[in-house]
C-alpha cells in the first residue's frame, strides 16, 4: 500500500443528507485521517474541503481533467431528473450534468448510501423530483460499485477503497453491484439474536421481559431476514454496537426501495394497499375463509330446502291423484 501512488478521489453530494460523509468520517479500520494522509488525495468534497465557491468548482474541474480515467468518484445522494434537473444544481449546473461528466471520466464510481445506489428516500413514492440512482442517471457504467445503507458503513467504504488501491481492481460484486464482502449475507444469518429466533423466543413488546433478555426482534418487525449487510459482523462507531445489538429491529435500509417496501418498520409485513396500517392480513384472510365456508353452508341449505319443498309438493300431488 505504501508503495502505490496516491490516487485521486472526488466526492460529490446531490440529493443527500451528508450521512454517508458523517459515517465515512467515523471509519476506524483504517481511520479517515490515515486514508487522507497515506492512501488517497481527496481533491473535492464539499463538506470537508477548505475551498468554497468558484475555487472549489475549479479544483473539481482540474482534478477530473488532470486524472481523467484514473480517479475514483464517490457519489452521495440521488440525482433528480424532474424539471430539467432544476431540483439540484451546483454552480449553476444540474446534478445530472455533473454526475455524467464526473462518472464518465472515472476509473471507478462508488454510489455510496441507498439514495445514490437505489434512489433512496428522495425516490420514495411519489418521487416528486424524479430522483434516480447513479446507475439509472448515468447508464452503462462498467466500474460502478453500489454501497447502499442509510448511511453506508464507513468501515466498508474504507475497506473498498483500500482493496481497490492495493489490488488495482474492484472486489467481487453481486447482481446489484454490491461488494460481496459487505453484502454477501443476510443480517439475519450473522445476528447474535439468531439462537433466540431459532428457539422461538421473541420480544413481544418494547421493554418486556424478552426484550430485556435480548430475545429476537422478529415480531417487532425486524427486517434482518430480508436485508443483505454485514452490520452484525462489522458493527458501527468503531465496532461498538449495531441497531439490533442495542434492541432496535433492523429496518432494511440497505435494500432497494426500502422506504416503500420495508415500511411499516415495526411490523412483519407491508400494509395491504388501501386498507391502512392497522389491518391484519391474517384476520382478513381468516375472515374470507370463514366467509366462503358460511356462504356454502347457506347455499347447501337452499338446495336442501328446495328439495324437501319439491318432495312435499310431489307427495301432495301424488295423494291428490290417488284420491
Amino acid at each position: 500500500m505504501e508503495t502505490a501512488a496516491k490516487p485521486t478521489l472526488v466526492w460529490l453530494e446531490f440529493q443527500d443528507c451528508a450521512g454517508n460523509t458523517e459515517s465515512f468520517l467515523r471509519a476506524s479500520r483504517p481511520t479517515v485521517a490515515e486514508i487522507i494522509l497515506d492512501t488517497l488525495s481527496i481533491d473535492y468534497h464539499e463538506t470537508i474541503m477548505a475551498a468554497a465557491g468558484h475555487q472549489a468548482q475549479q479544483s473539481l474541474a482540474e482534478a477530473i481533467e488532470r486524472d481523467h480515467g484514473k480517479y475514483i468518484a464517490v457519489i452521495e445522494g440521488s440525482i433528480p431528473s424532474g424539471a430539467g434537473g432544476a431540483y439540484c444544481t451546483i454552480g449553476g449546473r444540474s446534478a445530472l450534468e455533473i454526475a455524467q461528466e464526473v462518472c464518465d471520466g472515472a476509473a471507478a464510481t462508488v454510489a455510496i448510501g441507498t439514495c445514490a445506489a437505489f434512489g433512496g428516500l428522495p425516490a420514495a413514492a411519489p418521487n416528486p423530483t424524479g430522483a434516480m440512482s447513479v446507475s439509472d442517471a448515468v447508464p452503462g457504467l462498467t466500474n460502478l460499485v453500489n454501497m447502499p445503507a442509510c448511511p453506508a458503513n464507513g468501515d466498508n467504504l474504507a475497506a473498498l477503497i483500500v482493496h481497490y488501491v492495493t489490488f488495482g481492481r474492484l472486489p467481487d460484486l453481486d447482481h446489484l453491484r454490491r461488494p460481496l464482502f459487505a453484502y454477501g449475507k443476510l443480517i439475519h444469518d450473522a445476528c447474535e439474536k439468531r439462537s433466540h429466533y431459532d428457539a422461538g423466543q421473541y420480544t413481544e413488546e418494547w421493554g418486556d421481559e424478552g426484550h430485556r433478555h435480548g430475545y429476537c426482534l422478529y415480531k417487532m418487525g425486524c427486517k434482518g431476514p430480508v436485508t443483505y449487510q454485514n452490520c452484525p459482523n462489522i458493527g458501527w462507531n468503531g465496532g461498538t454496537n449495531w441497531p439490533v445489538g442495542c434492541g432496535h429491529p433492523c429496518i432494511g435500509c440497505a435494500e432497494p426501495s426500502f422506504w416503500d417496501r420495508m415500511t411499516p418498520f415495526y411490523r412483519h409485513l407491508p400494509e395491504i394497499p388501501g386498507l391502512g396500517p392497522h389491518a391484519s392480513l391474517d384476520k382478513i384472510g381468516l375472515g374470507v375463509t370463514v366467509g366462503v365456508a358460511a356462504a356454502f353452508a347457506t347455499h347447501t341449505a337452499v338446495h336442501v330446502a328446495r328439495r324437501s319443498l319439491a318432495g312435499a309438493r310431489k307427495t301432495a300431488s301424488d295423494e291428490e291423484n290417488e284420491s
Binding site: V226, T227, L269, P270, L281, G285, T289, A293, H299
Partner: peptide, 24 residues
C-alpha cells in the same frame, strides 16, 4: 425479499379460501 414474503403470505390465504370453497 420483503415483497416475496408478502405475496407468499397473501397467496396462502387465497389458497385456504379456495380450499374452503373446494371442500364445500
Amino acid at each position: 425479499l420483503q415483497m416475496a414474503r408478502f405475496i407468499h403470505h397473501v397467496g396462502m390465504w387465497l389458497l385456504l379460501g379456495f380450499a374452503a370453497h373446494h371442500f364445500w
